[in-house]
């Protein structure tokens, strides 16, 4: 046992390999848990039972769905670009794992700590758009193409309010290091308590919904207009990877919100936040945020494309700009 630990400590590449395998496991586990929660909560909102058949309260349902997807044939449409068509789900999934590596689950529990962690995460998160564009384009289907185009325009528009709202936190802490940002919020003074940063928090949540293509901004896969949008032609685990990546992105969105605005692994009222308790606090904040997103999804109709753009350019961006100015002013003053 000691030898193995020594081995791991000597070879950093091996350490990274293990970390990535664990992270892939976490991404899949997250998809399973979130898929189950989403179905259950949607069912309760609609006053149904949801999955009930397999396992107690149907908790095995998502695992079996995953097994079913693995067993299905990967159909490539006749005139599709075979290479890109196969590549797209991977391209969608890989950045998610890479971002998970940089998330600080607690003070001591993280894959890598980067000085520019925030920039890294945002950069990685934008690769998702490429994946959707490639998926839509390579399937050679008009509906997929619509979905891809919408997704690109939507993501370009919503990156800006996300960056601007996060920048106001960066201004306050003067750091891109996620660990430092979390440490700056120790005690009960989470950033969401300050009024200017609270506005940034709300803007981030709305824009994050759009960034992760969740309802009411799920235009790339608007099923009543585009049947299934960019993944219309995907079957089997190609489709499965898109679903896993969607939940992974949701997790990332919520975890950035909780790191930047809700104090990350800090417990409320300065409660103990050791390695494990910190992870507990962090995960509970993330899950609360994700549950809110699910609740929102099953309540609202979908917005139209131009309205989505209006929301970004006419409301979110001006507000976040003004907010950023106010924050900069306050930081200089104090």
């Amino acid at each position: 046992m000691q030898q193995i630990i020594d081995l791991i400590q000597t070879y950093s590449l091996l350490r990274m390999l293990i970390a990535f395998l664990v992270l892939i496991g976490i991404v899949f586990l997250n998809a399973i848990v979130m898929g189950y929660l989403e179905r259950k909560i949607a069912a309760r909102i609609q006053r149904r039972w949801g999955p009930m058949e397999i396992g107690v309260q149907g908790w095995l349902q998502m695992i079996l769905d995953g097994v079913k997807m693995l067993a299905k044939q990967l159909i490539v449409p006749r005139d599709a670009d075979r290479f890109l068509f196969r590549l797209a789900p991977l391209l969608c999934f890989t950045p998610v794992v890479m971002i998970f590596a940089a998330l600080p689950f607690s003070k001591a529990l993280y894959g890598i700590n980067l000085h520019i962690g925030l920039i890294y995460i945002i950069a990685m998160a934008s690769i998702n758009v490429f994946a959707i564009l490639i998926a839509g384009w390579s399937s050679n289907n008009k509906y997929s193409m619509f979905g891809a185009m919408r997704s690109v325009a939507q993501n370009i528009a919503y990156e800006i309010p996300i960056l601007l709202s996060l920048l106001s936190v960066v201004l306050t802490t003067a750091s891109f290091d996620l660990q430092k940002i979390v440490e700056a919020q120790s005690g009960w003074l989470w950033f969401a308590v300050y009024p200017n940063l609270f506005v940034a928090f709300v803007i981030y949540l709305i824009a994050g919904c759009a960034e992760t293509n969740r309802a009411p901004f799920d235009l790339p896969e608007a099923e009543s207009e585009l049947t299934a949008g960019f993944h219309t032609e995907y079957s089997g685990f190609g489709f499965g990877l898109f679903a896993v990546a969607e939940y992974g992105n949701l997790f990332i969105m919520a975890s950035i919100a909780s790191i930047m605005f809700l104090g990350g692994w800090n417990g409320p009222f300065g409660l103990a936040s050791g390695p494990l308790m910190g992870a507990f606090w962090f995960l509970s904040k993330v899950f609360v945020l994700m549950l809110v997103m699910i609740w929102v999804r099953w309540t609202y109709p979908r917005v139209r494309f131009d309205q989505l753009m209006n929301l970004a350019w006419k409301y979110l961006i001006p507000f976040s700009l003004v907010n950023l100015l106010i924050t900069a002013f306050l930081v200089k003053m104090i």
Partner: peptide, 16 residues
């Protein structure tokens, strides 16, 4: 109709 607009829940209340 509301389902066409992307909201899933109202149709189930209507069914109720």
């Amino acid at each position: 109709y509301v389902l066409d607009l992307g909201a899933f829940t109202p149709i189930l209340y209507a069914f109720d």
